[in-house]
Simulated assay, not measured.
Amino acid sequence: MNRIFVKPEFAEQFEERFRTRAGLVDSMPGFVRNEVLRPTRAGDPFIVLTYWDNMGAFTAWTESDAFKQGHARSGSLPREAFSGPNVLEIHEVIGQGAQ
C-alpha cells in the first residue's frame, strides 16, 4: 500500500496519471492487480494498493527496468503537487472474505 498525499488542485491530474499509466507492471511475474483509492475526506491520501503473489515478485518489480521506466515516464506530477512524502506499507494477507 502506498499512501500518496496529493494537494487538491492536483487530484484530477493524479487520477489521470493512473488512468493512462504505462501498464508495465501488468506483465510482471507474480503481479495480481492494483487499485487506486480516492480519499473521501480532505487531507487524506490517495491509496495505491498493489497485489502480488509473494514478496519476491514485488521485490523483483521494484528492481526492474520496467519499474524505473514506469515511474520516470513523462507526465509525472511536479513535486509541488504533493503535500507530504508518500508512505509505503507492506502487508501480508492472513484472511480473506468471500469473493
Score class of each variant (00 low, 15 high):
Arg17Pro: 02
Gln96Asn: 10
His91Glu: 05
His71Met: 12
Ile47Arg: 06
Pro29Cys: 00
Ala22Trp: 09
Phe46Leu: 02
Pro39Val: 05
Tyr51Glu: 07
His91Ser: 10
Asp44Gly: 13
Arg38Cys: 10
Met28Cys: 01
Arg41Ala: 11
Glu35Arg: 07
Ala11Gly: 11
Trp61Ile: 01
Asp65His: 07
Leu49Trp: 15
Ser27Pro: 00
Arg19Lys: 14
Arg73Ala: 07
Ser27Gln: 08
Asn34Ser: 03
Leu49Met: 15
Asn34Thr: 02
Val32Gly: 01
Asn86Arg: 11
Phe58Gln: 15
Glu9Leu: 08
Pro85Lys: 12
Asp53Lys: 05
Met1Tyr: 04
Asp65Glu: 11
Thr40Ile: 11
Leu77Pro: 12
Arg79Lys: 14
Arg17Phe: 14
Thr62Pro: 08
Gly56Glu: 10
Val36Gly: 00
Val32His: 03
Gly56Lys: 12
Phe5Pro: 05
Trp61Cys: 04
Asn54Thr: 03
Ile90Arg: 15
Ile94Asp: 13
Trp52Cys: 01
Phe46Tyr: 14
Asn34Phe: 07
Thr59Phe: 08
Gly95Pro: 10
Asn86Ile: 06
Val25Phe: 10
Leu37Pro: 00
Gly97Phe: 14
Phe58Trp: 15
Gly56Ser: 09
Gly23Glu: 04
Val48Lys: 01
Ala98Val: 09
Asn34Leu: 00
Pro39Leu: 03
Arg73Asp: 11
Met1Pro: 10
Trp52Ser: 00
Ile94His: 14
Arg17Leu: 13
Gly43His: 05
Phe46Pro: 01
Arg3Gln: 11
Arg38Thr: 15
Glu63Gly: 03
Val93Gly: 08
Asp26Trp: 02
Lys68Met: 07
Thr50Ser: 11
Gln13Glu: 13
His71Trp: 09
Ser74Leu: 06
Phe67Ile: 02
His71Phe: 09
Leu24Trp: 13
Ile4Trp: 06
Arg21Gly: 05
Val48Gly: 01
Arg21Ala: 13
Arg17Tyr: 13
Pro29Ala: 01
Arg17Thr: 10
Pro78Met: 02
Phe18His: 12
Phe46Gly: 02
Arg3Tyr: 15
Gly23Tyr: 10
Asn34Ala: 03
Ala11Met: 08
Glu9Thr: 04
Val6Gln: 05
Gly56Ile: 03
Ser64Cys: 06
Leu88Met: 09
Glu35Lys: 06
Gly75Cys: 05
Ile4Lys: 03
Ala66Pro: 04
Gln99Met: 05
Arg21Phe: 12
Asn2Asp: 06
Ser64Lys: 07
Arg17Cys: 08
Asp44Pro: 06
Pro45Thr: 07
Glu35Ser: 09
Gly56Thr: 06
Trp61Gln: 01
Phe67Val: 00
Glu12Trp: 12
Leu88Phe: 10
Arg41Asn: 14
Phe14His: 11
Glu89Asp: 07
Arg41Met: 12
Lys7Gly: 10
Ile90Leu: 14
Lys68Asn: 12
Val25Glu: 03
Gly56Phe: 00
Val48His: 06
Thr40Gln: 14
Glu16Cys: 09
Leu88Val: 14
Phe82Trp: 14
Lys68Ile: 09
His71Ser: 13
Phe67Asn: 05
Pro45Val: 04
Gln13Arg: 13
Arg73Asn: 11
Asp44Thr: 15
Glu15Gly: 13
Trp52Lys: 03
Glu89Phe: 00
Leu37Val: 11
Arg33Pro: 00
His91Arg: 09
Arg33Val: 00
Pro78Cys: 01
Pro85Val: 04
Arg21Cys: 01
Phe18Thr: 03
Glu63Ile: 01
Gly75Pro: 08
Pro78Asp: 03
